[in-house]
Amino acid sequence: MGGARAHLPGGRALRCPRRQIAHERTRREQIRLQAAEMFARGTCDPQIARCLRVSRTSVNRWHQVDRWHQVGGARR
C-alpha cells in the first residue's frame, strides 16, 4: 500500500522537488541550533517552543538529545 499523497485539482499528485526538501531540512536544522543556544543560556523549554514557534514535544526531544550528547562528551 502506498503512502498518502496530496493531490492538486484534476487528480495530479503534488510532488516536492529535492531542492525544496533540502531547504526545509536546512531550515529545521537552523531552528534546532537556535534551540541549542537557548538551552545553553538556561531558557526553559516552553519559552523556547513559543519563541521558535515549534511544539513543546519537539523542544523536549531536542533538549533530551542535547543533554545526552553533553553527558557522552564528558565521559570521553
Results as ranks from 00 to 15, higher is better:
Gln47Cys: 04
Met1His: 10
Trp62Pro: 06
Asn60Pro: 02
Trp62Cys: 06
Cys44Ala: 13
Ile21Arg: 13
Arg12Trp: 07
Ala74Asp: 11
Ala74Lys: 07
Ala40Ile: 01
Ala22Trp: 00
Gln30Pro: 00
Gly42Asn: 08
Gly3Ile: 06
Phe39Arg: 04
Gly2Trp: 05
Ala36Phe: 04
Arg67Asp: 11
Gln70Lys: 13
Gln64Ser: 15
Leu14Tyr: 12
Arg32Glu: 06
Arg32Leu: 06
Thr57Asp: 12
Ile21Gly: 04
Arg56Lys: 10
Gly2His: 09
Leu14Trp: 10
Gly11Lys: 11
Glu24Ser: 07
Glu29Gln: 15
Leu33Met: 05
Arg15Gln: 12
Phe39Leu: 07
Arg50Trp: 08
Ala4Asn: 13
Arg61Thr: 14
Glu37Asp: 14
Arg67Trp: 09
Arg50Phe: 10
Ala74Arg: 10
Arg75Met: 10
Gln70Ser: 13
Ala74Leu: 10
Gly72Gln: 10
Val65His: 09
Ala6Arg: 14
Asp66Ile: 06
Pro46Ile: 03
Gly11Pro: 01
Ile21Tyr: 01
Ala49Met: 02
Val54Phe: 01
Leu8Tyr: 01
Gly3Phe: 09
Ala35Gln: 02
Ala35Gly: 07
Trp68Asp: 15
Pro17Tyr: 02
Ile48Phe: 00
Arg32Gln: 12
Gly3His: 13
Gln70Thr: 13
Gln47Met: 10
Arg56Met: 05
Arg5Asp: 11
Arg18His: 07
Ala36Leu: 04
Arg19Lys: 10
Arg53Ile: 08
Arg76Met: 05
Ala40Thr: 07
Asn60Met: 11
Val59Asn: 03
Gly10Trp: 05
Ile21Cys: 05
Arg76Tyr: 03
Gln47Ala: 15
Arg75Thr: 15
Ile48Thr: 02
Ala49Trp: 01
Leu52Lys: 00
Gly72Trp: 00
His63Lys: 15
Ala74Asn: 06
Leu52Ile: 06
Phe39Met: 08
Ala4Cys: 12
Ala35Leu: 07
Gln64Pro: 00
Gln30Tyr: 00
Thr43Pro: 01
Met1Gly: 12
Gln20Pro: 01
Pro17Arg: 06
Gly10Asp: 13
